[in-house]
Nucleic acid binder design. Structure first.
Length: 558
RNA sequence: GAGGGCGUAGCUCAGUCGGUAGAGCAACGGACUUUUAAUCCGUAGGUCCUGGGUUCGAGUCCCAGCGCUCUCACCA
């Protein structure tokens, strides 16, 4: 052990926390009792949520053999179970025998009696640990419990006099010692930085966090199920790209040593999925991580999860139906609540979602005639945008982004985009000025983006070139993907393509206002241990730990 | 990348006008066999993010840096 116990005249050296010292002391005592403080396999336990559901099996057994059910008002403040029992006559509460395991989140010690609140990921329940009931040895063990310890219990489910559903312990087990104190017991972790850096504590102790991430899992499972049921094939494309294509974003650069080759982390899934369309995968999708070397904000994390779907012989309308199906199924998977609270307001996901044209929305929200370029320019100028020399559709799109997008509470499909602002999209056959594209907006956020994909290799190559020519210096790392053009030259079926930002969808479906609430480990600057060993609460905790390890390892190795 | 806010005990937070660093929880010692944020008595716990500066004196004022956060920009 590297820790020293506090002594009367100890020098003002930085010492390990008092909490850790006392916890290590208890750890040693548990080991001395012949109990492995790090536990082991523990079969046949019942999740605490299920145990709570067994409350109706608890009964009051009178001496004459009659078994009375517990009144339903048990646990309510104005109901005394003690009085009720006295009225019924002599007897005892009998309930099912159960085995539970979990973390100690609350403890109340009253002499020869200890109450413990035990929590697992299904719920929380109180344990009654009486010296007489569990015996000397187990009671000594219970006295060594700290908040945060992982323990197990065998006992009988019943009620205390105050009507609290309780496991009356008969046998205790020890599974792991918590050497660090948990967060404050009724405020939890509030510091946003600590919540992200110590996500394990945030998950366990902050209300709703674990539940939100389990919802994320259910949403992702549901999306896969929807696609799989429609015959889509899930694939895993490469994340290391020689050419970062498929989107306009700055990539992360990495390096392969053996090949002495700079590579890019992928910024999109698109180009490889389309190669698979050429290869005959007629319905294909990938649900995976992409990486963009851009700013960080409540809506942006450098790595995030995208879904991209392609269907041969489909178009953007096919993808619109699919998008709605994906969302509806996800909501069903979360329990079918179509009205989801979002800040002060509520999002109504009841299908069908509204479908409105770009121009209609422009007229409605920006109060401008979209067919009148002069009027549109006037509005753009009033927003501080200089329309001179710009393509009329670019000016129009500026007004759309400024005036319309934020007001699209949705869910709403925006259709009929001007073709000139989406160069990589097929145009309408009867109106080449309009692109076959939709975007799904919810609460001003772009959630989905879909196209009728371009499969003309010559046109694609030409558009690539004009796009590359217009890029600023720092994005010139983008390159022409000749192999992708070659793939198209072999014939890609006409197809509908769809992209959905999974993190943002999860935000909306779980009411999270920041993307960092739906990403388990969002990117943070690394903690920097200070030379003095102490610093902010976060760094001192991590830093001290590392120092201890090094000190422990040095003597044996030298 | 630009601007604003924040950083005090393990955690949650006070700290007045610049004048010896505070509380609750957690910890340690003691009392208590039906408690519910248990209660009661006692004890210990601090590089006030870091580094400069102003001042007789800085947690407090000024400058720089670090971290987080909000708004904006880029972007999905």
């Amino acid at each position: 052990m590297t820790t020293t116990f506090p002594m009367s005249a100890s020098p003002p050296k930085p010492r390990p926390g008092l909490h850790e010292a006392s916890r290590r002391e208890k750890l040693a005592k548990i080991a001395e009792m012949g109990i492995d403080p790090w536990g082991g396999r523990f079969d046949d336990r019942t999740p605490i949520g299920d145990i709570r559901a067994m409350a109706n099996q608890v009964a009051y057994h009178l001496e004459d053999g009659t078994k009375l059910p517990i009144p339903p008002e048990v646990g309510q403040p104005d109901f005394s179970l003690k009085e009720w029992k006295a009225q019924q006559g002599q007897g005892e509460l009998v309930g099912p025998r159960v085995r539970a395991a979990g973390r100690i989140v609350l403890q109340r010690r009253t002499g020869k009696l200890i109450f413990v609140n035990l929590r697992d990921w299904t719920g929380e329940i109180q344990l009654f640990i009486g010296k007489k009931q569990v015996g000397e040895s187990d009671f000594e063990l219970a006295k060594l419990f700290d908040l945060g310890d992982l323990i197990g219990v065998d006992g009988m489910l019943a009620y205390t006099n105050t009507g609290e559903l309780t496991i009356f312990a008969e046998k205790l087990h020890f599974h792991a010692k918590s050497l660090q104190p948990p967060p404050e017991k009724h405020h939890g972790l509030h510091d946003a930085e600590l919540r992200q850096r110590l996500r394990y504590l945030d998950l366990f102790y902050t209300e709703g966090v674990l539940e939100r991430f389990r919802k994320r899992t259910r949403i992702v499972q549901s999306i896969r199920r929807t696609l799989d049921n429609q015959g889509y094939c899930e694939v895993e494309g490469p994340t290391l790209h020689a050419i970062a294509g498929g989107a306009a974003a700055r990539p992360f650069i990495t390096h392969h040593n053996a090949l002495d080759l700079d590579l890019y982390m992928r910024i999109a899934l698109e180009l490889h999925l389309k190669r698979l369309l050429v290869g005959g995968m007629e319905r294909v999708y990938e649900l995976g991580r992409v990486y963009r070397n851009e700013g960080i904000s409540p809506r942006h994390n450098p790595e995030f999860t995208m879904l991209e779907v392609y269907q041969a012989y489909g178009d953007y309308r096919t993808m619109m139906e699919l998008t709605e199906q994906i969302l509806v199924d996800a909501i069903e998977a979360l329990g079918g609540q179509y009205q989801i609270p979002w800040g002060e307001s509520t999002i109504d996901f009841t299908p069908p979602f509204a479908r409105r044209t770009y121009d209609e929305l422009l007229a409605e929200h920006a109060q401008v005639d979209p067919s009148d370029p002069v009027a549109v320019s006037t509005v753009a100028r009033s927003l501080g945008f200089e329309p001179e020399g710009k393509h009329p559709d670019v000016v129009k799109n500026f007004v759309f982004e400024e005036h319309v997008e934020d007001r699209l509470k949705g869910p709403i499909f925006v259709i009929d985009y001007p073709a000139s602002i989406c160069p990589l999209t097929r145009r309408k056959r009867d109106n080449p000025a309009i692109a076959e594209r939709f975007e799904l907006f919810i609460e001003g956020m772009e959630i989905a983006n879909a196209y009728t994909e371009l499969n003309d290799p010559d046109l694609q190559e030409e558009l690539f070139r004009t796009q590359l020519a217009g890029l600023p210096e720092e994005e010139s790392m983008a390159k022409m993907d000749h192999d992708f053009i070659r793939a198209l030259q072999h014939g890609m079926p006409p197809a509908g393509g769809l992209g959905i930002g999974i993190d943002r969808l999860v935000m909306l479906l779980t009411g999270a206002r920041s993307i960092r609430e739906v990403i388990l480990f969002p990117l943070l600057r690394p903690e920097t241990p200070r030379p003095g060993g102490s610093g902010t609460s976060a760094t001192s905790e991590g830093g001290a730990e590392r120092v201890d390890v090094q000190e422990e390892q040095k003597p044996p190795s030298s």
